[in-house]
Amino acid sequence: MNRELYEALGLHQQFGETQGRSFLLASANGRCTMEIESAINAAGDKPYHPCLEATPDSSTPKGTVHHLKDWHESRVFPNTTRDIAVYRPHGVKPGQALSLLLCFDGANYLDPNGPVRAAQVLDTLIARGDIPATAAVFVNPGLPQPFQSADLLSTEFDAAKIAAADQRSIEYDSLCDTNARFILDDVLPLVSKSFDIRFSALPSQRIVCGLSSSGIAAFTLAWHFPTEFARVLSHCGSYVNLRGGHHYPYLVRTTERKPIRVYLQSGAADANITFGSWPLANQQMAAALDFAGYDYHFEFGSGGHSLRHGGAVFADSLRWLFRGETP
């Protein structure tokens, strides 16, 4: 297909642009983006609960969590504000190189009462010697100025929510390397300097993780920079046509295999909206990884578009991704 035809069909635009609306409010054939809400609250998620490792016993040494609130000094995404949190494991020795877990949509993973409870899981796994001593960085998507807060879970489509959702899509759904450069050039140097943390330089000791749009963002980071991050944990990844993510299965099949290990998770009740079917998209992605000879695992259950299933298998997924690495 030549460029002229590609553009004539409107394939160069995100759904909603031709309607002059945010993708959140766009509709076609009597269907709309916000039908995703039924998948976020799917009955198929009821069997899933946080993994046992998310509840450490009282004798387990606890790491510490530090916060950078309203950070707004990004050179890659200027004029945005975001929160960043950092988990530092217990008993770190001066100069010790730590493995790294990077979580996009970080607050969802860090929430101590949420479906994942990442800090508690890390406390348990590190204390048991199941994984190496690991620091974690939890990065939220940026809020474009002048909006300093937005409730993405509300059903009110105010200007703040629309601007925040659009910014999140730009950062996470885009297939370019901009978000990866944001992490490598802005976030990791900031965290290292602010909290005196030395990250392992081995890509096999660096996991990048995310949900939905941030799930595909995790894969995109490793795809562009496999010598920096070689482990991917993708929960309900958006390998659909939000900003071209549906092309990844083809790219995986036709590009020389990259040295990355991938853990995919989705479910039968995952989202099925105007941009595509998440269950089918993740199955296509898994089939492509298999075809190309990747080291991958595909966890497909009954759940919807949430972290419920991902949280239930979170400890197992970290063990699988870190396997072969010396604690």
Rank of each mutant, 00 (worst) to 15 (best):
P226F: 01
P226V: 03
P226K: 04
P226E: 02
T227K: 13
T227N: 14
T227D: 15
E228S: 14
E228F: 10
F229V: 08
F229A: 06
F229G: 00
F229L: 03
F229N: 01
F229D: 04
A230V: 03
A230S: 14
A230N: 05
A230M: 03
A230P: 00
R231S: 08
R231T: 05
R231A: 10
R231D: 07
V232N: 05
V232P: 03
V232S: 02
V232I: 10
L233R: 03
L233E: 04
L233F: 11
L233Y: 11
L233S: 01
S234R: 01
S234L: 09
S234N: 10
H235E: 06
H235I: 10
H235C: 08
H235M: 13
H235P: 00
H235T: 04
H235W: 09
H235V: 10
C236E: 13
C236H: 04
G237I: 01
G237A: 13
G237T: 02
G237E: 05
G237H: 06
S238C: 07
Y239E: 01
Y239N: 06
Y239P: 00
Y239D: 01
V240S: 06
V240N: 05
V240M: 11
V240C: 11
V240K: 06
N241H: 14
N241Y: 12
L242M: 14
L242E: 08
L242H: 04
L242Y: 05
L242S: 10
L242W: 01
R243V: 12
R243A: 13
R243H: 13
R243W: 12
R243L: 14
G244N: 03
G244Q: 03
G244T: 02
G244S: 02
G244W: 00
G244E: 03
G245T: 03
G245Q: 12
G245H: 02
G245C: 04
H246E: 15
H246Q: 15
H246I: 09
H246W: 08
H246P: 05
H247K: 13
H247Q: 14
H247F: 12
H247L: 14
H247M: 14
Y248L: 15
Y248M: 15
Y248V: 14
Y248E: 10
Y248W: 11
P249Y: 11
P249K: 08
Y250C: 11
Y250Q: 15
Y250T: 14
Y250R: 15
Y250S: 14
Y250I: 11
Y250D: 15
Y250W: 12
L251N: 07
L251R: 14
V252T: 11
V252P: 04
V252H: 11
R253V: 05
T254G: 06
T254A: 06
T254Y: 13
T254P: 09
T255H: 07
T255Y: 00
T255P: 06
T255I: 04
T255W: 00
T255K: 05
E256L: 12
E256F: 10
E256M: 12
R257K: 15
R257E: 09
R257C: 12
R257Q: 14
R257L: 08
R257M: 12
K258P: 06
K258Q: 13
K258F: 05
K258S: 07
K258I: 07
P259R: 08
P259Q: 12
P259M: 09
I260S: 09
I260H: 09
I260N: 07
R261G: 10
R261L: 07
R261W: 04
R261V: 13
V262P: 06
V262E: 09
Y263H: 15
Y263S: 13
Y263W: 15
Y263N: 11
Y263K: 09
L264W: 00
L264S: 01
L264V: 08
